[in-house]
Design a protein around this nucleic acid. Structure first.
Length: 276
DNA sequence: AGCCAGGGACTCC
DNA sequence: GGAGTCCATGGC
């Protein structure tokens, strides 16, 4: 995809593979707000403003434009990915619907915490809890709050997570945060998919599905296919799978290989957006 | 009131 | 290792 950087701005002319609404609302990230004229996106301590310029180009404005160049996966060619995925009717429809989806490269710690909170929860509440977490324990940066540092997270008691709305996940969070250190995070980043998966599911509150989300969104592993309630319906209705979620995931990875994660995102956005 | 949400832990067998 | 059950919370 063509783009260029000019004075704290990334300009994407003719963005056929970038739509900020698709990117934000396909369920991969929770710290954004739709300001109608633009989207505000936050990740770790950084923020960006993203908007369309007369439908002809997309502008990403940030003091940390290099961070968001990587975050939005701008060097990846989604035109190729999409052309390889249009094998079934349902994927063709899903890609046509969510043509501007990109899988963002999120901070690993933030991804782990966010997706533990996501379990058996809905996106509105997940966003609210994470926002509360940042407001209470994140450093104030200009007009917003950073995601809490690992040290700040370690100071939070279970009762305080409950107060923020985390419910029964509070104990999982405390347990996992205590177990994580910088070496644990650094080691994960150099592991292959299977090895990293085995480490992640050792964390409290991280099972099969959450681990795959962390692999996909926090570790850029695309040979995974997280199956939540929505994807379970998709696997059943469009791919004829009757098995449990873990087996659904495995057979979809077998089908799509290293493009499974992308396929999953197009399908999730299509299914969920159409039915809400 | 009861069901649902980007599921997982725990307990039984 | 599979199947059942319970788990906080808020919107509908």
């Amino acid at each position: 995809m063509d783009y260029y950087i000019d004075d704290k701005k990334i300009i994407i002319p003719n963005p056929t593979d970038f739509n900020i609404k698709h990117i934000c609302e396909c369920g991969q990230m929770f710290r954004f707000s739709d300001k109608t004229s633009h989207f505000e996106v936050m990740s770790t301590k950084f923020s960006a403003i993203v908007y369309e310029n007369d439908k002809k180009s997309v502008i990403i404005e940030s003091e940390n434009e290099k961070y968001f160049e990587k975050y939005f996966d701008l060097n990846n060619d989604y035109a190729i990915i999409k052309s390889e995925l249009i094998t079934t009717s349902i994927l063709k429809q899903a890609i046509n619907f969510g043509y501007g989806i990109r899988i963002v490269k999120q901070d690993l710690l933030e991804t782990i915490i966010s997706f533990i909170i996501s379990a058996n929860n809905n996106i509105g509440r997940i966003k609210k809890i994470i926002n509360e977490l940042c407001t209470c324990y994140g450093e104030k940066v200009e007009n917003h709050f950073a995601f809490p540092t690992l040290n700040a997270l370690k100071s939070i008691k279970a009762e305080e997570f409950v107060k923020m709305g985390a419910g029964y996940r509070a104990n999982y969070l405390v347990d996992t945060i205590n177990l994580i250190d910088e070496k644990f995070l650094a080691d994960l980043k150099i592991m292959d998919t299977k090895t990293a998966y085995e480490q992640l599911v050792k964390l409290k509150g991280v099972g099969n599905k959450v681990a795959e989300c962390i692999l996909l969104f926090g570790l850029s592993k695309t040979d995974v296919f997280p199956v939540d309630v929505w994807m379970s319906r998709v696997c059943k209705e469009y791919f004829g799978l009757q098995c449990n979620r873990k087996n659904m995931s495995q057979s979809m990875v077998k089908k799509f290989g290293s493009l499974a994660g992308y396929a999953q995102q197009y399908l999730f956005y299509y299914k969920r957006t159409k039915e809400i």
